Amino acid sequence: MTDAAHEPDFALTTPADVASDPQAVEIMRLWWSRGVPVMTLKPAFNDPTKFGEVLAQAARHMSRVYEMQRGMDGEESYKQILKGLEQTLAGPEFDTLTEKPGGGAA
Results as ranks from 00 to 15, higher is better:
residue 1 M to A: 09
residue 1 M to Y: 01
residue 3 D to S: 14
residue 4 A to M: 09
residue 5 A to Q: 03
residue 8 P to G: 01
residue 10 F to V: 00
residue 13 T to D: 01
residue 14 T to R: 01
residue 15 P to Q: 04
residue 16 A to D: 09
residue 17 D to P: 11
residue 17 D to L: 13
residue 18 V to T: 07
residue 18 V to L: 04
residue 18 V to G: 02
residue 18 V to F: 02
residue 19 A to D: 05
residue 19 A to K: 02
residue 20 S to H: 10
residue 20 S to Y: 08
residue 21 D to V: 02
residue 23 Q to G: 04
residue 23 Q to V: 15
residue 24 A to G: 03
residue 26 E to C: 08
residue 27 I to E: 07
residue 27 I to P: 04
residue 29 R to S: 04
residue 30 L to Y: 00
residue 32 W to L: 08
residue 33 S to Y: 07
residue 36 V to Y: 09
residue 36 V to M: 10
residue 36 V to N: 07
residue 40 T to Q: 08
residue 41 L to G: 02
residue 41 L to E: 01
residue 41 L to T: 02
residue 44 A to Y: 02
residue 48 P to V: 04
residue 49 T to D: 07
residue 54 V to G: 05
residue 55 L to Q: 03
residue 56 A to W: 12
residue 56 A to E: 14
residue 58 A to I: 13
residue 58 A to H: 07
residue 60 R to W: 14
residue 60 R to V: 15
residue 62 M to D: 08
residue 64 R to V: 15
residue 67 E to W: 08
residue 70 R to F: 00
residue 71 G to L: 00
residue 72 M to P: 13
residue 74 G to H: 10
residue 75 E to R: 15
residue 76 E to V: 15
residue 77 S to C: 07
residue 77 S to K: 09
residue 79 K to R: 15
residue 79 K to Y: 10
residue 79 K to A: 12
residue 80 Q to G: 13
residue 80 Q to L: 12
residue 82 L to G: 10
residue 82 L to N: 14
residue 83 K to S: 06
residue 83 K to P: 03
residue 86 E to A: 11
residue 88 T to W: 06
residue 88 T to C: 06
residue 91 G to M: 02
residue 92 P to F: 12
residue 94 F to Q: 09
residue 96 T to P: 05
residue 98 T to C: 09
residue 99 E to K: 12
residue 100 K to F: 09
residue 100 K to T: 14
residue 101 P to S: 08
residue 101 P to M: 10
residue 102 G to V: 06
residue 103 G to A: 05
residue 105 A to V: 15
residue 105 A to E: 15
residue 105 A to P: 15
